[in-house]
Amino acid sequence: MAKFHCSIVISLVLLQCLVALVASESFDFFYFVQQWPGSYCDTEQSCCYPTTGKPAEDFGIHGLWPNYNDGSYPSNCDSSSPFDPSEISDLERSMQKSWPTLACPSGDGQKFWSHEWEKHGTCSESNLDQHAYFKTALGLKQKANLLQALKSAGITPGGSYSLKSIKDAVTEAAGYTPWIQCNKDSSGNFQLYQIYLCVDTSGSKLIECPVFPKGQCSSEIEFPSF
């Protein structure tokens, strides 16, 4: 009888582990987030350029984040899968260009990419391994060329524009509605900080966002130079 009871307990534990594993790896969509370096730097906190030099005046990738339709999200899903730079050595040059770090002190990007993989990327492992995760994000940046979309609508760095005109420009170019995140400059003015687009769970195509994050912008926002 004791042996039978032990078998049941072990089976239940294994079942719970399996359920937890499946739950940790399932999600509904990705947020693909790009940030404007001029707004990152134009705050009281300021910024530090990467050790590889000042990035180009272009939107940089912040991350590719698994999310649920209810607005919550999984994080740090697999501590046994740490960031391994050797896995993305062939992507490093592209990542330095398209996914630069602006945090202080100056770095080469490894710490930033490690954080993004371990917090967000590990939650997409059922669909994307580490190399595929970063390669997918780089591909999405090419597909969603935000700076070109804004410039085509006459929206250029150094000016102030309506929030609606920025949303409309991105929607026109990408085919899907973005979410705009603002931060405040050192004088307290709202400025264009990050642009969110939504992507299906395979990371292959843009979709309409099931839910938007919470946040606030004014109706007129700055688009600072970098």
Results as ranks from 00 to 15, higher is better:
K3H: 12
K3G: 14
H5Y: 15
C6A: 15
I10H: 10
Q16D: 15
L21K: 14
A23L: 13
D28T: 06
F29E: 07
P37V: 01
C41R: 01
T43Q: 05
C48Q: 03
N67S: 08
D70E: 03
S72I: 05
S75E: 13
D78L: 10
S81F: 12
P82K: 10
D84N: 15
S86A: 15
R93G: 14
S94N: 13
S94L: 13
M95P: 08
T101M: 00
E116F: 00
W117P: 00
K119S: 09
H131G: 05
T136L: 00
Q142R: 13
Q142C: 02
A144T: 10
L146H: 00
A149V: 10
S152C: 00
G158F: 06
G158L: 00
S162I: 07
L163G: 04
D168T: 12
V170R: 04
A174H: 03
Y176H: 11
T177I: 11
I180A: 04
C182D: 01
K184W: 02
D185E: 06
S186F: 14
S186Q: 12
G188K: 02
Q191M: 07
Y193W: 08
L197Q: 00
C198F: 08
K205D: 12
K205M: 09
L206R: 06
I207A: 09
E208K: 03
C209N: 06
C209R: 00
C209K: 04
G215T: 01
C217T: 08
C217Y: 03
C217W: 07
E220H: 12
E220T: 15
E222P: 02
